[in-house]
Design a protein around this nucleic acid. Structure first.
Lengths: 160, 160
DNA sequence: TCTGAAAGCGCCTGCAT
DNA sequence: ATGCAGGCGCTTTCAGA
């Protein structure tokens, strides 16, 4: 999966599509100094090879009523395979959890949570996370300010 | 900015575009049971009002050599306005930092870091974060597994 | 591989409802 | 607000280098 050759132009295309994923192929072609047909073939190849996994609209949280985000560090009560898989199923079906990673360190998981307000978060924490998921300990931190929003992954050679 | 009325169809459109941001307008229109022109108008309005902030290609980390991700909790040495702004400038210009939030709790910031490998991370930590950014203390956790990748924000009414 | 041309399709503006 | 119709631009395929 990691043995796909990407040349300089591929990386330029990826950088452009991470920045602006819906620009017309003609425009993209001009930016990377290629003809539209050659550019399209490269994009389609990147999609087929799974380098580009998809495209997503970036939605402004406040516009849809997401007024509070939190990062919740979680430790499970039971580290058996079944408990781990059950926890994975739960976080995948809860919409408030917008991302979840298993981490090294003294806590097992880091959850990125998006909710309307503190009351919504409280319900999520008490009714769902602490009640259903087999969780032993949680540690919540609320987002005060987004210093750097996600704008895409760093690309080799183009990066510093 | 938060006083924009979104009806049920707007939310359906947002859900669709978060899932698949580059689908043709005709396809989107059919999915939300609208004519293409009516659908396009709504999408353009959502873009103009800033509800849709943009579109982004989703790139597979491993395909571009990002083999290690980490979450780094950071405490600043100095909490003056200048030190805070300097830190913000640094994380915004470092490509390895793919997201950064100021948090409540005993640490000031949470950095989401994407690098090639542990050696790359080591250079980032020692040369950049600890050396230049006015940092007092750091706590790094590495991503073992992504249990739930980011797939978009939760939308009211459509969510549970 | 790329470029260039030709054909088909979808976008996007009118205007009417 | 939605739907319909037209011009226009883009996407996409196919030869040729």
């Amino acid at each position: 999966m990691a043995a796909i050759e990407l040349d300089r132009i591929d990386l330029l295309i990826l950088a452009e599509l991470q920045r602006s994923g819906r620009q017309a192929n003609a425009e993209l072609a001009e930016r990377v100094h290629l003809s539209p047909s050659a550019c399209l073939r490269r994009v389609q190849r990147l999609e087929r090879d799974g380098v580009i996994a998809g495209y997503r609209a970036v939605v402004e949280p406040e516009a849809i009523g997401v007024g509070l985000q939190a990062f919740v560090r979680v430790q499970l009560a039971d580290h058996g395979v079944e408990a781990i898989e059950a926890f994975s199923r739960f976080v995948n079906q809860w919409d408030e959890v917008i991302a979840c990673h298993a981490l090294t360190g003294d806590m097992d998981y880091l959850l990125h949570v998006a909710v309307q307000d503190l009351e919504h978060f409280s319900r999520f924490l008490l009714d769902r996370l602490l009640n259903q998921a087999g969780v032993d300990d949680v540690n919540s931190s609320f987002v005060l300010r987004t210093v750097k929003p996600f704008r895409g992954l760093p690309l080799p050679t183009l990066a510093g």
